[in-house]
Design a protein around this nucleic acid. Sequence first.
RNA 1: GCCCCCAUCGUCUAGAGGCCCAGGACGUGGCCCUUUCAAGGCUAAAACCGGGGUUCGAAUCCCCGUGGGGGCACCA
Length: 506
Amino acid sequence: MPKNGNSVAPARVRFSPSPTGLTHLGSARTALYNYLFARKTGGVFLLRVEDTDQKRYDPAAEQDLISSLKWIGLSWDEGPDVGGPHKPYYQSQRKEIYRKHAEGLIKKGKAYYCFCSSEELKVVREAQQKRHEQPHYSGKCRNIPVEVAEQRVQAGESHVVRFKTPKKGSITALDLLRGEITVENSKVDDMVLLKSDGHAVYHLATMVDDHLMQITHVFRGEEWLPSLPLHAHIYEAFGWQQPVWVHLSVFLKPSGKGKMSKRDTAEARLTGKSIFMKDLADMGYLPEGVTNWIALMGWSYDDHTEFFTMKDLIEKFELAKLNPSPASIDFKKLDHFNGLHIRALPQKELAKRLVPYFQKAGYHVAAGQLAPIVPIIQTRMTTLDEGPQLAGFFFKEEVKPPPEMLVGKGMTAADSAGALIKALGIIEVLPEFNAASAEEPMRAVADELSLKAGQLFGILRNAVTGQEVSPPLFESMEIVGRDTVIARLQEAIAALETMGEGRKAA
RNA sequence: GCCCCCAUCGUCUAGAGGCCCAGGACGUGGCCCUUUCAAGGCUAAAACCGGGGUUCGAAUCCCCGUGGGGGCACCA
């Protein structure tokens, strides 16, 4: 058994999800680690679709899976869409392979036909639960002579194939993060390998595929840890060498108590957070930010850097720094990483990525129009959908702030209108109009009127942008352009004047 | 009920017997910068689950307890 988890030998790893729902954080992280390890070692990363449960398989989920993995920047060398030497990569199309392997096990006396019905099994299970026993197969069909069993199968009797777990002794399996895990064989159940519909169950299909596809390292969720002993037995029964097992801890909900439930997930979505990749993309998170974030939930790199691009991750990733303890999801940290990656984006690229979010908000702009505003909003966003909130006013015909908003702090409407008139007069005659040329004269206006710069600038900001919070005033005015600034100031003055005299701002 | 796993600031984590009266990051408070909001800089508070061992010495090793998580299907 290979013991060195950090072997530099090229690894063959796989991500093999069962497409039954939207791709979430946990799956994405498992896929990511697989990918990183493959790229790090110069090995192969393959994608395999575990669709042996016909009832739960959902083609839409498979679409979501592919797009989610691609979104975070993963690519695979073998898989359903790209083919490869071990195709097919859909388990449903590998039915025959599993059947043959199951029969091989029967011939070796390591598996057997079982004719117990689901109803029968259910009754037994319930009785066991009542007696506070761990539910397990009774063993009723375990010792039916093979010839007899085969006759019944030939006769068309409904059956499954079960693994024949040794009843005595114990088995020790090795998990890379936890070391040896030893379990009494009496605790390992005779699990079904082949269902009555002829499809293999995970325990058979995955072991067979991983072996056939020469998988060297298996990264999977911790929920598989309890069946690791079974899997070790199956490998032994076949006489195969086991891969290096790496069980990744689960993600807990933000409180740290328990894993995300359906209700938690729904609640998170309401507040602009989600564990689904698709939602995160819609909400304006960058794939780079999400990737950086999930990479660090269960893995660390100890030189105190936390900002990683995919390239960095491939370079730095190592098995030895994987952490077996469960981590709770912290969306605040996602915001932090997302902000970091937004700021790290080249301006042209950021403009391009902002386009869909502006369009979704109703501003039909192209990247070229966004280019000049990117520099003044780049440090002000944590998600891309904040772009339009912050800079939508650049593309509005009219901003129409409510008149109360135009009254300066501690000033009357008349004072405010007066200040605006004065400012307007200067703006109209400035030889050049840009951020640098407008600021000093405006400060002078404030001085002259014995106002604080902030008082005047506040009124100007509200008049020009229609927002209390905006990118820097003078840069914004420059981009908006002198004509529009003048028009908006005139509208503001008119609005203030109709407000009447002497009314103070609230 | 049975089996398995995990356990350092609120959260993510560093720490593989002395380098630790425990370091970093997020978040939180304060200060600086500042026309708003951010970003940035500085700074503060904040943790080794409990009890027994082992050892000259334990956050680090062992045992027990407690807490948390996972599993116990003809689902994966």
